[in-house]
Design a protein around this nucleic acid. Structure first.
Lengths: 129, 129
DNA sequence: ATTGACCTTCACACTAATGGAAGGGTTCAG
DNA sequence: CTGAACCCTTCCATTAGTGTGAAGGTCAAT
C-alpha cells in the first residue's frame, strides 16, 4: 500500500511515516514512480512504534529493540553488535521503572477521583435532602 | 534548602529546577538575597516530576495532576476549574494505555533475552563439549 | 580584601518530534 | 486535456526538555 493508506489505517500522519523512515524504523520499498510501498506487516510495526514513542521511548532506542519485538521472529544469533544484550537489559529495566511510576501515579489519580466523587456525592445528597 | 542542595539530593540539575519553576511546577520561596529556598517536602515533589517527565508526561499535564498526587492531601472541593475531573479521567486512561504498551513490550524484550540466552547456552554447551 | 563556592538572570543553541508550505511529478476520472 | 487527489523532496518553524556560558551578586573563610 502507499503512504496515504497506511496513514489512514495506522492513524499516523504521513509526515511521521516519512520521519520514521528517516530514523530507520521502517524501510518501505519504492515503486517505479518513486512512491513508497508498504507491505501489510508494516501496519503493525508502525503501531508498535507509535505506542513506544507515546510511552516516551526515543526513536533511537526503538530502533534497537524493535527487531526483538516481533513474535514469530527468527532469533538473531548472529548478533549484529555484541552490546545488544546489555542494551536490552538496561532498556527493559528503564521500562520497568517507567511502568512503576506510571502505575503509582495512576493509582493516586484514581484514588483522588474516587475521593472527590464521594465527597461531592455527600454534598449532592445533602443538597438533595 | 537552596537550589544546589536540592539538586544534589534529588539528582535533578539546578537548570531543570529553575525550568520546573518557570513551568509552575514548583514555587520556592525567596531569601532576602534573592536565592531560591526550597522546603523539605519539595524534594519529594521534584522526584515525582522527574519520574513523570521521564515517563513521557508533559509538564503542562503534570501541572494539572500534581496537586492530586500528594498523599495526605486536602481534597480540593472548591474545584479551581470544573473540567478537572474530565482531565483526570482522560489522563488516567492515557497512563493506563502507556502502561499496557510498556508492559507488553517489556515482556517481549524479556522473552527475547531468554530465548537468545538459551540459544547461546546451547551453543556454549556444544562448543564446550 | 581577595578567593572560591555559591547564587542570580539572560541568552543562545541543540535534539527530538512534529507541522506545514513550496514546487513539482503521477494517476485517474471526466 | 484538465482538475483532483495523490505522491515526491526540501526547507523552515515550533515545542519541550536540556546544556552551557556570560556577566554579575552574596557570603564565608583566609
Amino acid at each position: 500500500m502507499r503512504i496515504g493508506e497506511l496513514s489512514k489505517r495506522s492513524g499516523v500522519p504521513a509526515r511521521m511515516l516519512r520521519y520514521y523512515e528517516e530514523q530507520g524504523l521502517v524501510t518501505p520499498r519504492r515503486l517505479d514512480n518513486g512512491y513508497r510501498s508498504y507491505d501489510e506487516h508494516l501496519v503493525d510495526r508502525v503501531g508498535k512504534i507509535r505506542g513506544l514513542i507515546d510511552a516516551g521511548i526515543p526513536t533511537r532506542i526503538i530502533g534497537d529493540i524493535l527487531p526483538c519485538l516481533d513474535r514469530r521472529q527468527t532469533i538473531v544469533v548472529t548478533d549484529p553488535h555484541p552490546e545488544l544484550r546489555g542494551i536490552l537489559l538496561q532498556e527493559r529495566d528503564r521500562m520497568t521503572q517507567k511502568i512503576d511510576i506510571l502505575v503509582h501515579n495512576r493509582d493516586s489519580i484514581t484514588r483522588y477521583i474516587k475521593a472527590t466523587d464521594s465527597a461531592l456525592g455527600v454534598v449532592a445528597e445533602k443538597t438533595a435532602s
